[in-house]
């Protein structure tokens, strides 16, 4: 009888121990899985931040390098060209006095070539560093960019915004939007064979939207990404947007062509007015 009671007690203890172990296993699996996922998420966040910092640094370096080149072009080549122009003007007077028509014609050609070169250098300098963007803001910079493009190409570029006075945004955000707009328009001109480009800039309380639509041949961004054909342009757009928590979406309008919409959270400029970008000052850019 006593052994039966002992057996029952033993069985009870063994069963309870087994059940406790089962509970422990279930809890452990849940806890371990949760911890591992948290750890994975933490590592993934660190990697994301690190990649973001790398991208940020790369883009900062790119902007600094652009400024340096623009500055060198303006200060060195620009100055030398101006001096050459002055010298040629003086020489032109001497040649005019000599009365040799052939020499005069060569002189005029040289003068016009130098003037053309000065204009080219100025254009390249402005392309490298969008000074209008820093001085007057995004809308003016886009308008200036369109104006220059329309001069050089047989294109109709329309620009509209949902606000008269586009509020100034952080320096990095404005430059990001400007560069994306530049890239999208250049892509449309280079690859889409389009005749018309619409640029729409919209702002609400939370987001800024930039839409660039063309009437060209259109493209399928998914196919381009799948076939590893995504050029530096599309990747550059995504990289720039990743830094400012923005997104880009490509659409194919029913009437043809293609449309790209970049959306970035609003980040108003701080109270202090930013230092104007100027190609003539040697400084490191921290956008």
């Amino acid at each position: 009888m006593q052994s039966n009671e002992e057996l029952k007690l033993g069985l009870l203890i063994a069963s309870i121990a087994m059940l406790m172990m089962a509970f422990f296993v279930i809890m452990f699996v849940m806890y371990y899985q949760k911890k591992r996922f948290e750890e994975e998420k933490r590592i993934s966040d660190i990697e994301k931040n690190y990649n973001r910092m790398l991208l940020d640094t790369a883009l900062n370096s790119e902007e600094t390098e652009r400024r340096r080149i623009a500055q060198d072009l303006h200060d060195d080549i620009g100055t030398m060209l101006s001096l050459t122009k002055l010298s040629l003007n003086q020489l032109s007077k001497l040649v005019a006095n000599s009365g040799d028509e052939k020499e005069e014609s060569i002189m005029k050609k040289s003068q016009s070539l130098v003037e053309e070169t000065i204009l080219h250098v100025r254009r390249i300098t402005r392309d490298l560093v969008p000074t209008t963007l820093e001085r007057f803001g995004l809308m003016e910079a886009i308008e200036e960019f369109i104006h220059k493009l329309e001069e050089d190409n047989n294109l109709v570029i329309a620009f509209q915004s949902n606000t008269e006075e586009f509020p100034r945004q952080g320096q990095k955000l404005e430059l990001t939007l400007y560069r994306i707009m530049q890239e999208l328009v250049n892509n449309a001109i280079k690859h889409a064979s389009c005749t018309k480009i619409d640029i729409v800039l919209e702002i609400d309380e939370e987001m800024i939207g930039l839409r660039v639509t063309d009437n060209g041949v259109g493209f399928d961004p998914e196919k381009i990404k799948e076939s590893n054909l995504a050029g530096l342009g599309l990747l550059g757009i995504e990289s720039r947007l990743a830094i400012v928590n923005g997104t880009v979406q490509y659409e194919q309008p029913a009437k043809g062509g293609s449309s790209a919409i970049a959306r970035i959270p609003v980040n108003p400029a701080s109270g202090n007015k930013p230092e104007p970008l100027h190609p003539f000052r040697r400084e490191r850019v921290n956008i």
Binding site: L11, A14, S15, M18, L19, M21, A22, F23, I26
Partner: peptide
């Protein structure tokens, strides 16, 4: 799985008896 784990854990020592 948790259901089976608890059920078979409860049965393991009692089953022979």
């Amino acid at each position: 799985c948790s259901g089976f784990l608890l059920y078979y854990s409860s049965l393991l020592f009692i089953a022979p008896v």
